[in-house]
Every structure is written in structure tokens, then in C-alpha cells.
Amino acid sequence: MSYRIVHYINQFFGGVGGEEKADLPPEIREGVAGPGLGLAKLLGSEVEIVATIVCGDNYCVSHQEEVGAFIVETLRKHDAQGLIAGPAFNAGRYGMACGFACSAAAQAGFTALAAMYPENPGVELYKAAAYIVPTSDNARGMGAALPPMAALMGKLLRGEKLGSPESEGYIERGVRVNTFYEKIGAERAVDMLLKKLRGEPFVTEYKMPVFDRVTPRPGVEDMTRATIALVTSGGIVPQGNPDHIAASSARNYGEYDISGVNDLQAGAYQTAHGGYDQTYANQDPDRVLPVDVLRDLEKEGRIGKLHHLYYATVGNGTAVSNARKWGREIGEKLRAANVQAVILTST
């Protein structure tokens, strides 16, 4: 079987110009261009570069939606199965452009591979979305970069089962993929334990993550003037769950106005959370989102006021990447609303 692929490069490697041409909109060259010449030889007769997209780095980074659509359309028009991008070495915007191009292609179901220096910012942003082959930090490493790109692209197109990132020569994407092992987990566990006991090398099936640590802010100096907001991962939502926040692995969060609400009544609010028994939260939603107590404190003058909006999602099984994104968004909204402090409640 033979495969057709498209090559993505920037204005510099496309021979259009340097920084001054970085605003070049994407254009198509039929066949190979720039580093594609060397790549085509290494790919051999089985894989053909049928077109090259040349795009200015700045244009790509600032017109992602348009460039993404252009890439997918070009792949379809050329009846291609994959996209190869770069190598970008340590050029930051080129790396981001290559990473983005690959993520757009991969999302549309195409095989996608980029190459760049491991510290290129494009790696951190796009390694989860696509395969990235490590290169040296500048174009003098072109000769060394192309062979592993060609080899891995061939394997990916053929759908071969890949070994570890180290053995296949790509940067670990940090993506967990399910697989059926030959042995059941219990047997694998005792095998691993015996190896560990004997001091023999063993490979853990999951490297424990290293967590972000958030340094707490200094305390609020004058609570009697502070606006306090409530944010919960305990799933308290208006009755009927208008934003359809899922019981587990939430895909969104909700923003709800509690102006004039002094007490969360059963029947008016409920929990959407599927990770705990809902009985007591539904009986009195203040147990998870303490609006009643905050209103008391407001009346007693012990806090300035309770922010009129609260934010809620379901923490149960929700991906950390989503939680981080929403946390940032909610934080920005609260800062814009001049909120001084937040009470975060879980379940």
C-alpha cells in the first residue's frame, strides 16, 4: 500500500523570506519544497509528499481557526492520509505552528507528526495532540532530524503498534492508552513485586504524577469590606440542572445568580454530583454550598458581601486539565468582578 501525505513548513523554509514574511497566509505548493526534498527520499516509494503548505509563523499562530480549516481541506483535497510538519528546531513560533498544524490534522482523523527541539514551547502545548520527534536546537541538525521523522511517519501510516517513546524516537506525549495485556493485573502485580524485592529492573505501569502546588494568598485584611464568592465542585445547581453538568467527568461548569437568595431550598436547588449520596445535599443544598451562613455573616456585617454569582461543577472523576482551565476562567471572572476571596467547597 502507498500513502499520500502533506508537508507543513514556514515562510523561511518555504523560501519566501524571514521574519518580514511571517504574516504570509497559507499557500499550497504541489509536490515537495524545502526540507521536503530530503524527507521525500527518506520516506521512499511507499510514502509520497503530494503537497506542501507554506505558511507564515505569525499568521498561523494568530489565525488558528482559518489555518486549521485550510490544513484539513488541503489534506482532503489531496486525498492524503497524513501531515508531517517541520522540523522547527528551536524556533518558538514555528514550533507552535507545527504543533498546531498537527493537532488540527489529528483532530480531523489524520496521522500527524511534527519535529522540533524538546524545549521548543510547541512541545509542551501540543505533545498530547500529536507525535513530536526531538531534534537539535538549530537547522544544522537537519540531516539528523529527517531520518527518524521519516521512519516514524511510515510506522504511523502503516498503523504499526508502537513501542515506548524512547524506543520509537518521539517525545513522550503523556497520553494514557488502554491496552489488553497478556496477564491479568493481579499476576502483573505479583511479578512486579518479586522483581522489586529481588532488586531486578521493573517498569511501573504508571509513573506517579508530579502535582502543581499553589501557594496560598495572604489572608484578607478586612473581611468586613470584602466581597466573598462561593465556588463548588460539589455540584449544587438550580433544580433541573439547566447546564446539564454531568454526574461524573464533567464537561462544563455553571454560573448562577443568587441575588436575593438567602437560603438554598430543597426543590429550588439540587446536586448534579454522582460521586456521593445525594440525599442530604438535596434535602438542604446549603450543606454543600453554604449560602445561608454567608447571608447571616453578611447581615451581621462580618463580611462585606456575598458575590451575586456562584460557580459550580462536579469534581467526580473530572479531568485535571479541565479543572485547571475552568479554575483559571472562574478566577479571571472573579477578579474582574473585584471579589477579594473565595470559599471553595467540595463534597
Binding site: P165, R176, V177, I184
Partner: peptide, 11 residues
């Protein structure tokens, strides 16, 4: 409890 053959690996 390791009842199954299912597991995961990192790519």
C-alpha cells in the same frame, strides 16, 4: 483487584 487484562501505557 487486578481481575482483568486491561491496563494502560503512556505514549
Amino acid at each position: 483487584l487486578g481481575f482483568n487484562r486491561l491496563g494502560a501505557y503512556t505514549i
